[in-house]
């Protein structure tokens, strides 16, 4: 009874002097708090049990090797060890606590990121610059129509007004521009896909 009222520091000192029951008192005193803390992170009884055991194995090893200097902070010290072991556990399993999906609702359909990843955005940039260079090779009249239609997003009516040719001529130039581009791409075996 007297022992259960002793402070952690007194118990640690007694343990270091060979009193094994002091450790028993320390574990009994703090097991609920430490175990609940571990369980609140891992949500698995078996894993929590393992981490709890590893925590106290480390505690015992450190105490017996004399690596623990008493500063009245036994519990925070043990909590820190268990916290580190929880981190090790997740690092080893290479995952963090999973969000469990319900079958009828997938959170990632809301959270998904539609932007391209680094590789795809590089490929996209290269393809765009390759196409731009191919366009430069076209005859001027075709190039002009293609640039207005594709890059400036103008209608054929606007193009015909601005270039002073009929709509049909503009359409024809656009058609030949695309045919010529395809020819050049086929001829040089250029791959323009991502």
């Amino acid at each position: 009874m007297k022992k259960s009222k002793s402070t952690d520091a007194v118990l640690v000192t007694a343990y270091l002097q060979g009193d094994e029951s002091a450790l028993s008192t320390l574990i009994t005193r703090h097991k609920q708090r430490i175990y609940s803390f571990i369980y609140s992170k891992v949500f698995d009884r078996d894993v929590a049990e393992d981490v709890f055991q590893d925590t106290f194995i480390k505690v015992i090893n450190s105490l017996k090797r004399g690596k623990y200097n008493e500063e009245g902070k036994f519990l925070p010290w043990v909590m820190r060890i268990s916290h580190n072991l929880v981190i090790d556990h997740f690092r080893k399993n290479n995952r963090m606590p999973k969000f469990e999906n319900n079958t009828d609702f997938n959170i990632f359909s809301v959270l998904s990121d539609n932007s391209l990843n680094a590789e795809n955005s590089m490929i996209k940039g290269q393809v765009a610059s390759d196409v731009r260079r191919l366009v430069e090779e076209l005859p001027d009249d075709q190039k002009q129509v293609l640039l207005m239609r594709i890059y400036k997003d103008m209608s054929f009516k606007e193009i015909s007004q601005q270039t002073g040719v009929s709509i049909n001529t503009a359409l024809g130039r656009m058609r030949y521009a695309l045919i010529n581009l395809r020819k050049v791409i086929d001829k040089h075996n250029i791959v323009l896909t991502d």
């Binding site: 028993s24 574990i27 097991k31 609940s36 194995i57 015992i60 090893n61």
Partner: peptide
């Protein structure tokens, strides 16, 4: 999380035995 969770007795017993065995 239930704040009253405790480890199994066998885990605690193992730790106490480990402590006694380690020199």
């Amino acid at each position: 999380v239930n704040k009253n969770m405790v480890p199994k007795d066998q885990t605690v017993t193992f730790l106490l035995n480990y402590s006694k065995a380690l020199r």
